[in-house]
């Protein structure tokens, strides 16, 4: 392959490995979008690393012809943090799921985001444990009947984007596995972001939790059940673009447009707002009471962890000079014998 001679294509990013997800899995669609996006982001394949934990989503790195690390359950953000700290020249992606990221790996996810490590985290949310064959997950809805909850789940679910916003992630977005155009756009935005990016992707597990996000996937339904956020624009949705989101106090509500209500009454989306307050309001809009927000909820600039660590090293060298081993060993009082 001579990557320099021609423009790379999606095919160039496919590895030679047989893909072992169940036929019909939402992961295929996400992988296809990723392969489509990678040639467009201007990073050479050898400078890309995909890091994952354990679960169906975590097989993702095997299927891309980039560098990849398939780790252990929940630890991908920590592996990625170490890698990015010593190799800021690489673009590092983390691929994880709702169990991997929010249950066993919750601690690492939270800290990677608050440190603003420059990694892009794709959280495939299917509200179920797939690889272990169908137990409820931290995002499963109350009452969900699974093999480990035959009487229905009594756990309250986590909202991944609330965790991300509460953990000070600098880029927070949501998309849907089969909403390919939207997903591609969100992936491109994540790739371009400098800092910790978390993208929640609604992903259908057609074996253990089929239809969990049908309201968001069905092209006929989704114009009424989703709002596609656009920075600087009033939040309008509906097949006929005839509804919007307005704030009533701190609570969002749906209002029909017309009859004296127009776009100027609506909440205007500002992904760059310094405080994540409005992003949190949008992130927590839940079907069926409200349409759910997809797109980029938050995109702000903050120095990245890896850059700060390396700047400290450079600053110390500029100030004190590069360390000399002999001086280090001779630190403090010394004396000579003989």
């Amino acid at each position: 392959m001579n990557a320099k001679a021609r423009k790379p294509t999606a095919g160039d990013f496919a590895s030679d490995q047989e893909i072992r997800w169940c036929p019909g899995c939402g992961d295929f669609s996400i992988l296809a979008q990723m392969k489509k996006v990678l040639p467009e982001i201007g990073v050479a394949p050898e400078n890309l690393v995909f890091v994952s934990g354990i679960g169906c989503s975590s097989r993702f790195p095997y299927y891309l012809n980039t560098y990849g690390v398939h780790g252990i359950h929940g630890r991908a953000p920590a592996i990625a943090t170490g890698l990015k700290t010593v190799r800021p020249d690489l673009q590092v992606w983390v691929v994880t799921g709702d169990g991997d990221a929010l249950s066993i790996g919750g601690n690492h996810l939270m800290h990677a985001m608050r440190r603003n490590v420059d990694i892009k985290i794709l959280l495939f949310n299917n509200r179920i444990y797939g690889l272990t064959k169908g137990q409820y997950s931290p995002t499963s809805l109350p009452g969900h009947v699974t093999r480990s909850t035959p009487y229905g789940s009594v756990d309250a679910p986590l909202h991944p984007l609330s965790i991300a916003l509460g953990s000070e992630a600098t880029f927070v977005a949501r998309s849907v596995d089969t909403h390919t155009k939207h997903l591609g756009a969100v992936l491109r935005r994540a790739a371009a972001h400098r800092g910790a990016a978390l993208v929640e992707i609604y992903q259908n597990c057609n074996v253990y939790n089929d239809g969990a996000f049908e309201y968001a996937k069905d092209v006929k339904l989704r114009s009424d059940t989703l709002v596609e956020l656009e920075h600087g624009q009033p939040i309008v949705f509906g097949a006929k673009r005839d509804k919007g989101i307005r704030l009533n106090g701190l609570a969002p509500e749906v209002v029909p447009l017309g009859n004296g209500t127009d776009a100027s009454d609506l909440l205007v989306h500002d992904e760059t707002a310094a405080e994540p307050t409005l992003a949190t309001v949008l992130a927590r809009m839940r079907h069926p009471a409200l349409p759910e927000a997809i797109g980029v909820l938050r995109a702000v600039e903050r120095p990245t962890f890896d850059a700060l660590v390396n700047e400290q090293v450079e600053a110390a060298r500029a100030r004190e000079g590069k360390g000399e081993l002999a001086d280090l060993l001779r630190a403090g009082d010394t004396w000579t014998v003989g």
């Binding site: 690393v49 890091v51 690390v69 780790g71 252990i72 630890r75 920590a78 592996i79 990625a80 943090t81 170490g82 890698l83 990015k84 700290t85 010593v86 190799r87 690489l90 601690n107 690492h108 800290h111």
Partner: peptide, 15 residues
């Protein structure tokens, strides 16, 4: 766990 797994990530990166 993050202490050791971050080190593993760094080792993969060549440190």
């Amino acid at each position: 766990i993050a202490a050791v797994t971050s080190a593993i990530g760094a080792a993969y990166g060549g440190a």
